[in-house]
């Protein structure tokens, strides 16, 4: 009986720890769930919380049940079950984006154009926002989109136009405000729509193979070429010579699309 006791104790301790881990995971998961939505990237992560605790618990039976740490203090307090849990923002910075040396192959360009179409009713329409937004402030948009933030495999595209500060005037979230309603039928649209938007004006024309292509789209609201064609843009649209800053020196805009000339053609 006696020699069975430590065994039992150990089993009880393991169970205790496992339970604690489970509760912690559930509670933190709950809060994470509150904070996060599907399309957001995980900005914090538990560093091997469960495995580390379990194995340590096995070898150190005297460890008592850890106390709960206030969620807001997780990063400062280095004790308890969340001691190893911190925001690893440095891990999130994407790999350096190397500029291309040649144009992307045509299939990548087509893929990039197709991806743009997913979020736009037609070429030139303001893209929808593919993630939930703060409903009452534009400052939140600019936190990531002002400079074009790259986080892991996600890129917050840099705004392609200047001096407009009321972001939600034109860009609305595709997923809606996500009010957690019970009656989800309310999210269904009244009817379908048969509009077929003009997909893309491009590609630009070249006078001869190797000549700089013309700009195949309006430049209104697209004054910062690097927003799409720079290293942060979609692969198929990137320029092979990002170091040359004066784009319109070689690539001429289309007067008709830019509404400067409307001619009887």
């Amino acid at each position: 009986m006696n020699d069975r006791l430590p065994h039992l104790n150990r089993a009880r301790a393991t169970r205790r720890v496992l339970l604690a881990v489970l509760i912690t995971a559930a509670v933190s998961g709950y809060f994470m769930g509150l904070r996060q939505t599907r399309s957001q990237v995980s900005l914090t992560r538990p560093t091997e919380l469960s495995t580390a605790q379990v194995s340590r618990a096995g070898s150190a039976p005297d460890r008592s049940v850890p106390g709960i740490v206030n969620y807001g203090e997780v990063n400062r307090k280095r004790s308890g079950p969340n001691a190893g849990w911190r925001s690893d923002l440095y891990l999130l910075i994407g790999p350096p984006r190397l500029a291309l040396t040649t144009n992307a192959p045509p299939e990548f360009r087509a893929a990039a154009v197709a991806q743009r179409q997913l979020r736009r009713a037609f070429d030139g329409a303001p893209p929808l926002v593919p993630h939930p937004i703060t409903q009452d402030s534009s400052a939140a948009c600019l936190a990531c989109h002002a400079s074009g933030l790259a986080v892991k495999d996600r890129t917050a595209s840099k705004v392609s136009h200047t001096h407009f500060s009321n972001c939600t005037q034109c860009h609305v979230p595709a997923g809606g405000p996500q009010i957690p309603i019970g009656d989800t039928a309310l999210r269904e649209p009244l009817s379908g729509n048969t509009f077929a938007g003009f997909a893309a004006f491009g590609p630009g024309k070249r006078a001869w193979p190797g000549a700089p292509p013309t700009i195949p789209h309006a430049t209104l609201m697209r004054s910062d070429c690097l927003s799409c064609h720079g290293p942060g843009g979609l692969y198929g649209l990137r320029t092979p010579h990002v170091e040359r800053l004066l784009c319109t020196q070689c690539h001429v805009p289309n007067a008709r699309l830019d509404q400067r000339l409307v001619t009887h053609e």
């Binding site: 929808l128 609305v172 595709a174 269904e188 649209p189 009244l190 729509n193």
Partner: peptide
């Protein structure tokens, strides 16, 4: 009846 608008505010 405009999907972009009803999607944003259904």
């Amino acid at each position: 009846r405009i999907p972009q608008l009803s999607g944003a505010m259904p």
